[in-house]
């Protein structure tokens, strides 16, 4: 597979250097780590928002660092959690004394490493709260698994909680907003192709020319169901219906939707999906307050998309629509 990669072992390191070089007055990398923070971190008088996870999901995570969103993010190796000491360095660099909210996607490695770091930071006197995002409706939340995964809905948590923190709200209020988004958001994704990890250099799973995976995560893992290729509208219906079943919204509810590309999908196709998504919401008597289309939470070069629906009230509309200025997302 042809790739713009020098050496798989250096890819995250080189990406982070390239990213901070692209935004030298906004982003800063902590020396000897894979942690990126706002250039002006720690920001006085504000709760700090931090996150992190495996690399390969760009612009997640560091792309959302900036005014109105994150203060910093730790990047792990491709599809691997950052280690606890990196999370600890991240928390330490972003805390300005008003507390830190850690936004964790529900993957065991991420959760355990972040929680270990939080406990260590607390021993140093830092006030830290955390939320775990688990918006992937494809996975059954049961006693017998580690639960639903955190996927594209995480961006909305960054946005709403980030806006709340920017308003000067205290840690418990910022956390409440983050949890409100988590309680009201659902996501379901599909893969038309597998992604190619730098390490392996070939597709993670085999998918026939006439097959797709439904219910994928963001690490190139197989989905919950493999079916024959369907039309864009049929795929959109399958994803959306699963999300709406899970959210169980009342007619007339206002929603924010996200059609998210997995990294290798042309915008043209994402808009085709969005067209059908909006039709379908109308058929369900749901009202679209805002519709986002783009690559927000990717899986390297995977072709495919995820659909996120988030029920919004006045508070969430104000926060999700509030100004943000980051490399990957700007709202005015």
């Amino acid at each position: 597979m042809k790739k713009l990669i020098n050496d798989p072992d250096d890819v995250v390191d080189e990406m982070l250097d390239g990213m901070t070089a692209a935004y030298p007055d906004r982003l800063r990398r902590l020396p000897d780590t894979q942690v990126v923070v706002r250039d002006d971190a720690p920001v006085d008088g504000k709760v700090a928002l931090v996150t992190g996870g495996g690399s390969g999901h760009e612009p997640t995570h560091a792309g959302y660092i900036g005014d109105g969103m994150l203060d910093g993010a730790a990047a792990g190796d491709v599809f691997s959690s950052p280690t606890a000491d990196e999370f600890e360095a991240l928390i330490g660099a972003c805390d300005a004394g008003d507390g830190v909210l850690a936004i964790i996607k529900n993957y065991e490695g991420d959760v355990m490493n972040f929680e270990t770091a939080i406990e260590l930071a607390e021993m140093e006197g830092v006030e830290v709260e955390s939320v775990v995002v688990n918006d992937d409706v494809a996975v059954e939340d049961s006693l017998y698994t580690s639960g639903r995964r955190g996927v594209c809905g995480t961006i909305l948590v960054h946005k709403a909680a980030g806006a709340k923190a920017a308003q000067g709200a205290d840690l418990s209020e910022v956390k409440r907003v983050a949890e409100k988004v988590i309680d009201n958001v659902g996501t379901m994704g599909t893969a038309l192709t597998s992604c190619v990890t730098p390490e392996k250099g070939e597709p993670t799973f085999d998918l026939g020319d006439d097959e797709i995976e439904l219910g994928i995560g963001i690490h190139g893992e197989p989905g919950t169901e493999r079916t024959e290729l369907m039309s864009a509208d049929e795929i959109t219906d399958a994803l959306t219906e699963t999300v709406l079943d899970d959210l169980d919204l009342d007619p007339g509810q206002e929603v924010l939707t996200v059609v998210n590309g997995m990294g290798g999908t042309p915008q043209m196709e994402l808009f085709v999906v969005n067209r059908r998504l909006q039709e379908l919401l109308g058929e369900h008597d749901l009202e679209t307050w805002d519709a986002w289309v783009g690559d927000y939470m990717t899986s390297l070069d995977m072709m495919g998309a995820s659909i996120t629906v988030c029920a919004v009230d006045d508070e969430l509309k104000e926060l999700l629509g509030a100004p943000a200025d980051t490399p990957a997302l700007t709202t005015t």
Binding site: G76, S80, S81, T83, A84, G109, M112, E115
Partner: peptide, 9 residues
Amino acid sequence: AEVGGASGP
């Protein structure tokens, strides 16, 4: 710092 994944913590 070195083991990573869930086994590190």
